[in-house]
Design a protein around this nucleic acid. Structure first.
Length: 333
DNA sequence: TGTATTTGACCAGG
DNA sequence: CCTGGTCAAATACA
């Protein structure tokens, strides 16, 4: 359904664009929006095709079209949630018993890169490794509060081979730090303030442990305001993912690794502190289609480290790098 | 000068 | 033995 829909959507949008081009009264902004929607639509369609191929191999057959994006392939037979993305078997040295899930973030050239990949947590890079069979190296990050609060959360960031605009961010372990929220709340006024153009994003709070808003509420706003797709998340998972990506531009998809469920059970798979990230510590701004900007937050202290994920990779993108969100926004049938 | 990142070395699982 | 994951010294940066 989705693939055809996206193609049809792209076609229809193209027609609208033509109409706009012929209409002298239409604004450039409108045309640009249409153009971006078209691009997003086709990107999405291509992703579906690519991922479908992968999942077909992994699962022994497709189960119909991917619902909305390539990230649909979050249910491989093993606990390798990344495997569906074309990564070779990476089961070695996996921390058993640790919650592990993958988030796919797509970015597009010409848009804010850092913001799209960062997640609001404070990460420090501790390693990078070339992965066999992958064009791009994998970056290893750990929570910056590891030393202080003993937070053992780590994440791995890898650029997709098939789709260079997509990053697979695998989160391993849970955040046990309790002081993150304060950092984020005080985003403005940090050493990176020079990059800020507006206040902190609406959903930037770091909810490590001190979750004040119910996960469900967060999820709602997450989906509503940030145009994020939660896929393959049933209610239980939804409750386990209080995190809200901070960017309204990101196409973020979470995929729970089956291993989490196997090891811990669905209900306990993700402690409340386990938050899906998508914000940026480096104050970053990227324009959105609807005109206003979202500023990525930064930790208030000098302990800012969370690197712009995308910059860890040897690829070059426009300075202005925004997240591709339009195409993933519900546009109605 | 302090902090973050880079990168080669090391460790351990399969 | 190969590979992924981590460590830690070197380097870069503000």
């Amino acid at each position: 359904m989705s693939l055809i829909y996206e193609l049809t959507q792209g076609h229809e949008l193209a027609r609208q664009l033509i109409a706009q081009l012929n209409a002298p009264s239409s604004s450039d902004e409108t045309k640009e929006i249409l153009a971006q929607k078209i691009e997003a639509s086709y990107e999405k369609a291509l992703s579906m095709v690519n991922c479908n191929a992968n999942t077909s191999v992994a699962t022994g057959g497709t189960n119909g079209m991917l619902e909305s994006s390539a990230s649909r392939c979050a249910s491989p037979p093993s606990d390798d949630s990344d495997r569906c993305i074309g990564e070779p078997d990476a089961s070695k040295k996996r921390k058993s018993g640790q919650p592990r899930w993958t988030q796919r973030v797509r970015v597009r050239p010409g848009m804010a890169l850092e913001g799209s990949l960062d997640d609001g947590f404070s990460w420090r890079k501790y390693g990078q490794k070339d992965i066999l069979g992958s064009k791009y190296p994998r970056g290893y990050y750990r929570c910056i509060h590891r030393s202080v609060g003993g937070c053992l959360a780590t994440k791995q960031v890898q650029r997709s081979d098939d789709d260079p605009t997509t990053f697979e961010i695998t989160y391993i372990g849970t955040h046990t730090c309790t002081n993150v929220a304060s950092n984020l709340v005080s985003l403005p006024g940090t050493s990176d303030e020079k990059n800020q153009e507006q206040g902190p994003p609406p959903s930037m709070e770091h909810l490590c442990h001190n979750l004040k808003q119910s996960p469900q509420d967060l999820l709602v706003s997450f989906q509503k305001d940030l145009n994020v797709e939660n896929q393959h998340l049933d209610q239980t998972y939804a409750n386990s993912f209080p995190y809200i990506p901070s960017t309204s531009n990101s196409n973020v998809v979470f995929s729970m690794s089956p291993s989490v469920v196997d090891n811990n059970g669905v209900g306990n798979a993700l402690p409340s502190g386990f938050i899906s990230p998508a914000t940026s510590r480096t104050n970053f701004s990227f324009p959105t289609l609807d005109g206003y900007k979202i500023i990525q937050g930064a930790p208030a202290t000098s302990a800012m480290s969370s690197p712009a994920v995308g910059l860890d990779f040897p690829f070059q993108l426009d300075q202005n790098f925004t997240i591709d969100n339009n195409g993933f926004f519900p546009q109605g049938p």
